[in-house]
Design a binder for these strands. Sequence first.
DNA 1: TTGCAAAGCGGAACAAGGTTCCGTATCGTC
DNA 2: GACGATACGGAACCTTGTTCCGCTTTGCAA
Lengths: 193, 193
Amino acid sequence: MSDDGTARPKRSDAKRNEQSLLEAAAAVFVASGVEAPVRDIATRAGVGTGTIYRHFPTRADLIIAVYRHQVEACAEAGPALLAAGPTPHAALGHWIDLFVDFLVTKHGLAAVLRSDNTGFDTLHAYFLDRLVPVCAQLLDAAATAGEIRSDIRPLELMRGIGNLCIGAHEDPTYNAPKLIDALIAGLRHPPKP
Amino acid sequence: MSDDGTARPKRSDAKRNEQSLLEAAAAVFVASGVEAPVRDIATRAGVGTGTIYRHFPTRADLIIAVYRHQVEACAEAGPALLAAGPTPHAALGHWIDLFVDFLVTKHGLAAVLRSDNTGFDTLHAYFLDRLVPVCAQLLDAAATAGEIRSDIRPLELMRGIGNLCIGAHEDPTYNAPKLIDALIAGLRHPPKP
DNA sequence: TTGCAAAGCGGAACAAGGTTCCGTATCGTC
DNA sequence: GACGATACGGAACCTTGTTCCGCTTTGCAA
């Protein structure tokens, strides 16, 4: 919605600034995490704060823009894994690994997935819109194959995984992938009815 | 550290205000969640914001004070469950249920358990100091009995559980206890060596 | 009962973060 | 070269936690 071809053509300085902002944001996110102050990003890009908001209506939109292609890659990997994997449950596991890798790699991105934070609804919505269907497909396949309990909804699982990734970057003691591994393992079969 | 008998005796108005604050905070937490602004609590208690900070050096300390007895109860339930339950794993499960109940009940408490938030270190530390040993005992017992994988550290598990509870209150779609159930189930035995 | 120092109080003021606003500068076209 | 539309910068605003300080209340003692 900010880069589709039908938009009014932008002035050259605007295009240049948008690019600077994306680069500066990416750099700052790596250095200080996704929670870095908007002002820092503006400074780094050599623009005013107002400029950020003209290009990206909200902080979340900037984050989305920075990570969009990685999210796309993750989304596209789903069907591929399902086709390639030995079983749907294995494919689900691998896909979750990708997702977790993404979340854990990005300094604090996970914490931001929860929507009630200041104005992160957009980001939340984007992630979910894009990835929930993929997760649903994997989950369905595994449930249909009788490998896992069938009372887990995709959104629920994604949210749980996201939550488990929170803070994974700060505390070396906390091994999110391990817990997620356990969670996925625990999905197999209902305990007992 | 704010209510032990050896402290200098307080003036009567101070005692009264501390009580009002605890009550007001409890009420506001129920109504608006633990993240409610300090000013709201002060207003509700009919005191100035400064008064809050004289009694509770930081927001987190107020939260601790409000929930202290519930945390104690949870801590004390651990050994009891271990003694009563059929197996250590069952006891662990029940104890986690208690813990989760507590977290989920309190509007947003879970989100606050992660320490990197502004000044919640105290709260984080208190919860962990009090509950991690209990969790350790249960985990040890279950691991020793060979019921669960032995590479899970107490702090790690607690943290994961806490994370899974985040946002449970806001979104009826998100069933934290179910996921936690799966996680606990997934703790049994290493998947494959 | 009255006086006084210590203890406590209220709320203005400060810091930090996101977001908005608007006067000014720049771009692109005629 | 001029002019309107577009974009820019950054000051200003809002919300939240926290600190500070002049004033009030309390409790004790004379």
